[in-house]
Design a protein around this nucleic acid. Structure first.
Length: 418
RNA sequence: CGGAGUGUAGUGUAACGGUAGCAUUCGUGCUUUGGGAGCAUGCGAUCCGGGUUCGAAUCCCGGCACUCCGACCA
């Protein structure tokens, strides 16, 4: 991508009304646009990152055999009445609207009801189980107070997976697979070493639910961490659980964190009222045993921003960066500089390396500042001064470390860089 | 949902009830070119609706929006 063609511009200063670090930086760098309180659009750079996060989740869900689908945002009232969640008194984050004929409908905030209703058409026998489905979709939640930028919006992207099993025992097998998939997701996102598997208050059918909590100073949650085994306990349970459930370690450290994922047992909470039934080997009718597995790509993008960015701007792990390499051309009027930049841009593009090429006619300072702000992992500066050295100077965004690489080793270096 | 605050060019700010100013961005020209450079010149704004007043960005009422604190957060 040529930066001169990019439809967004960076801002030197943040917006007065955007206090959260994540939204402030993402707006300055041109990743998102604020439409209303808690409602943000994703612009080209931001969408690239958001899609990468989603894709990592998608790949990991596929690996454990879950199948992707896309349910509707407009939701039929009936299943929600049956499950008892249509009333605003019970479930207070509804966005509701009406069809022209007066029929009430809801905007999807979660999808247990519609999916269970749908699966009634496809699950009849024990032979149809176990099965799992997931989607990556925009959720709508009428939060009374949006805050923390894209960490807590009224409209946000969520990956929600649901599992359907014959019984609790079969459910547990899938649940364990999902845990592994989740740990892979956070590892690949570059936040695995600070994301804790956390015991939290559970639903009707399990004592606890499990959250994935990523340490962040500005986080809304408080957890008690066991650093021996990366397990934590949500503050809401600390009176009940006083030691690490995994290794019995009693030394738990209080820290702030962000809930980036949440998995829990649903049991027959929805299959019972909605009538999701299968026939077992003996011909008996049984309720399908369910699990639910959430992960928020947009919230995770905000979390990564909160924990990795510095005073100069964003810092992206390679796995989610909008581009891997930023070619910054200094003095585009210099023929040799221009030719070298173009050549490099061409080579990277042909080799499938995602590259942003700052071909704008702008001053060095402006380009460097923009480059730092956008936060692409590797920056290659092409300038008259640099060309004389016969090597390329590659600067790592995360710590400013510089590598001097000969041209023939360049592609190898970039390909191996992760 | 309770409490507090704020709405002025794209952005950030100023103006006692009396000419809406400054900075930056943006356009043009010249100079400059390794960390948001300089000179000149130009474009661009009082959230919406009422009221008070000779006169309202300013005072009053209503609405809308945004921010913060708290409560809430499968």
């Amino acid at each position: 991508m040529r930066q001169s063609m990019l439809l967004t511009k960076t801002r030197k200063e943040g917006l007065k009304d955007e206090v959260s670090k994540n939204a402030n930086l993402l707006i300055r760098a041109g990743f998102i646009n604020k439409e209303m309180a808690g409602v943000y659009s994703y612009l080209p750079l931001g969408l690239r990152t958001l899609n990468k996060i989603s894709n990592i989740a998608r790949e990991e869900m596929n690996k454990i055999g879950s199948q992707e689908l896309l349910l509707t945002a407009l939701q039929d009232k009936e299943p929600w009445v049956k499950s008892g969640r249509w009333s605003d008194d019970v479930y207070d984050i509804w966005f509701k609207t009406k069809l022209k004929n007066g029929t009430e409908i809801g905007l999807g905030s979660t999808h247990e009801e519609p999916l269970v209703t749908l699966m009634k058409n496809h699950i009849r026998s024990y032979k149809d189980l176990p099965v799992s489905a997931y989607q990556i979709q925009t959720k709508f939640r009428n939060e009374v107070r949006a805050k923390a930028g894209i960490m807590r919006g009224r409209e946000f992207l969520m990956k929600d997976m649901y599992s359907f099993s014959k019984d609790e025992k079969e459910h547990e097998i899938f649940y364990e697979k999902a845990k592994v998939a989740y740990s892979h997701i956070f590892k690949r996102l570059g936040i695995g070493d600070r994301t804790y598997f956390t015991y939290a208050l559970g639903g009707t059918f399990s004592k606890y639910s499990h959250e994935y909590q990523t340490l962040a100073i500005n986080g809304e949650d408080t957890i008690y961490c066991c650093d021996e085994c990366m397990v934590a306990i949500n503050k809401e349970l600390i009176d009940e659980i006083k030691e690490c459930p995994s290794c019995k370690n009693k030394k738990l450290i209080e820290r702030k964190s962000v809930e980036v994922g949440n998995i829990f047992k649903l049991g027959i909470k929805y299959s019972e009222p909605l009538g999701l039934i299968y026939i077992d080997e003996k011909g008996a009718k049984k309720f399908v045993f369910m699990g639910c597995y959430g992960f928020g790509p947009s919230r995770t993008m905000g979390t990564i921003t909160e924990i990795l960015s510095d005073e100069k701007g964003l810092v992206w792990p390679v796995s989610v960066a909008p581009f891997k390499v930023h070619i910054v051309e200094i003095s585009s009027e210099n023929k040799k500089v221009r030719e070298t930049s173009e050549k490099l841009y061409d080579i990277f593009t042909k080799n499938g390396v995602e590259v942003l090429y700052d071909d704008r006619d702008a001053r060095a300072g402006e380009k460097f500042n923009d480059s730092d702000l956008i936060g692409i992992p590797l920056r290659i500066v092409i300038s008259e001064k640099g060309l004389e050295k016969g090597e390329f100077e590659i600067k790592q965004r995360i710590d400013g470390k510089v590598f001097n690489i000969k041209e023939k080793e360049l592609m190898d270096f970039v390909n191996k860089y992760n």
